[in-house]
């Protein structure tokens, strides 16, 4: 589903250029659960943003479901994100003034789906992540674990082929983090392609495959568990 070949991404940091990705090639098949690991600053988020069409590479090719997306315009990328990608962030990124339900509805709004259908779909998603009783709560009234469940429901609501999670348990305690990981595994079992970014090897162990980055290069790419 994902065919990335020789992708480069450089950032200007003051006077110097940082090679965030220095020629990355990667293939991910539909239904896979891939963990991207590596130390801080190794380029994990940059790679994930490109995979999620939030960002474009400076050079290289990226085929998403057979379509070249490396050089698409911002609005076309927005449409791909809306239809095919669900993001889960470390800090949840819920809109503070919107209820859990309204947050989950957001991707459907940009798809132009009417209020009634939107509501029903969002409710079903919140039920799926176990938040039937928190729908009208504001983010400030939710615990960290609950907030991340809302964010996952929001990522899932549009039925994306791909879920991208960047350090999704980074702001949670270990037990809650495990619960969230269990939810991700469940989703993956149901057929969602899952890419998890983490620097935590224990979490990465949940994945089918492990991609390790160092200084913007893939140094390890293999199936199975590392300890």
């Amino acid at each position: 589903m994902i065919h990335i070949s020789d992708i480069h991404k450089r950032y200007q940091m003051g006077p110097t250029m940082v090679n965030a990705l220095g020629g990355v090639s990667l293939q991910i098949e539909a239904g896979e659960f891939v963990a991207i690991t590596g130390p801080s600053g190794s380029g994990k988020s940059t790679l994930m943003n490109i995979i999620g069409c939030l960002d474009s590479p400076d050079s290289g090719s990226y085929l998403l479901a057979g379509e070249e997306v490396a050089e698409l315009a911002p609005d076309d990328l927005a449409e791909i994100r809306n239809l095919r990608v669900g993001f889960v962030f470390q800090t949840f990124n819920l809109l503070p003034r919107a209820t859990a339900l309204e947050n989950v509805e957001l991707p459907l709004i940009y798809r132009g789906i009417g209020a009634r259908r939107r509501r029903a779909t969002a409710q079903a998603m919140l039920e799926r992540v176990g938040l039937d009783d928190r729908m009208t709560h504001l983010p400030t009234e939710l615990s960290g674990g609950q907030s991340q469940r809302v964010a996952i429901a929001r990522a899932l609501v549009g039925g994306p082929a791909l879920i991208l999670a960047d350090e999704p348990t980074g702001a949670l305690d270990t037990r809650t983090g495990e619960e969230i990981m269990a939810l991700f595994e469940e989703l993956n079992h149901d057929g969602v392609t899952l890419i998890l970014v983490t620097h935590d090897n224990a979490l990465a162990a949940h994945a089918d495959r492990l991609v390790r980055l160092l200084d913007g290069l893939i140094v390890d790419n293999r199936a199975g568990v590392i300890v």
Binding site: L54, A78, E79, R81, F87, N93, Y110, R111, R154
Partner: peptide, 8 residues
């Protein structure tokens, strides 16, 4: 966030 979720 809105853009990440698909806002053009």
């Amino acid at each position: 966030v809105r853009m990440a979720l698909g806002a053009k």
